[in-house]
Design a protein around this nucleic acid. Sequence first.
DNA 1: CTTGCAATTTAGAATGATTCTACTTACGTT
DNA 2: AACGTAAGTAGAATCATTCTAAATTGCAAG
Lengths: 165, 165
Amino acid sequence: MGKRPTTTLHFDARAKEMLDDLKRAGLKLTAQREAIVRQFASDVSHPTAQELYDRLRQEFPQMSFATVYNTLDALAAAGLSGTLRLGQAARFDPNTEPHHHAVCESCGEIGDVPAPSLAPSPAAVKQLGRAAPGFRVRAVERIYRGLCAACADNDNDAAPHGDIS
Amino acid sequence: MGKRPTTTLHFDARAKEMLDDLKRAGLKLTAQREAIVRQFASDVSHPTAQELYDRLRQEFPQMSFATVYNTLDALAAAGLSGTLRLGQAARFDPNTEPHHHAVCESCGEIGDVPAPSLAPSPAAVKQLGRAAPGFRVRAVERIYRGLCAACADNDNDAAPHGDIS
DNA sequence: CTTGCAATTTAGAATGATTCTACTTACGTT
DNA sequence: AACGTAAGTAGAATCATTCTAAATTGCAAG
């Protein structure tokens, strides 16, 4: 009943990195943090704290909600997690590569869209300069809103050649 | 003690438009809605529901919080208000022209950045196509993160020529 | 102009997200 | 092994939002 080869057999490398980085940042290595980081490190679904907690609770029934928040805060402070605000609940993102997000307006699915950089383009800086003179841009975040492939297909099925009434 | 010439003397034209649009959408014209719309229509500060409520309560102590939400929902449904998610609380935006937002990471100020359109650029579509094939983009929302002019100035004052230690 | 009803408002309860508190536990150093 | 302190725990507190049931009212019809 020790390590169980359930989901990620090979002990996710990214999780190890994160734990090392936390340690390097002067934080203590605890069983809870290890569990949270393992659960989070390769999660592509942009989970909420609640979602992570629910999954974790199955393995560690004694884990506190506050610990999940504290650990996610620590990860964010260490630059190991990003935060997404789309609804009331914050969503966490272990992807530290520069990227944007695509949100399906039908099913809510959130996808990562890799970007070479979040630095503002010259054109963007120009436009900003007109609207907010003196504003010093650090990064530009984008949200692509639309329909994911699956939902777009459903739409087509429902109305293959325009509206049928 | 009827109409008081306090803030907006001339009975904001945008407010009238909004009320007309609500009526046109089949909604009833109530005193509360008029009050809320007047308060909201030309508000450039991206207020939260709480902030609007607090201001409205001074004039209309009997107004319910739920009414503020209901009215903002109605405005949003009618396309007369946008919603911004930057923190836990939703922020409402009466500006219906296509625009992005610039957020100061120091003081939290939010500015509008007019844009010709929210339609995705060909380059963006291409990038998206690689990351999420089949995704049908409708609009691209941008958040410029950085320092507003005032906060950038303060930074300069604090460390005029690099760090002094 | 009155009547009636459905839409709206209201106060407060309920729900969900997040933070805080006071106390206990245990990591990592000596 | 002992200690100091960071971290964990349960649960209360707080903020944002939605819901509910009852009272009110805009406005369409007569």
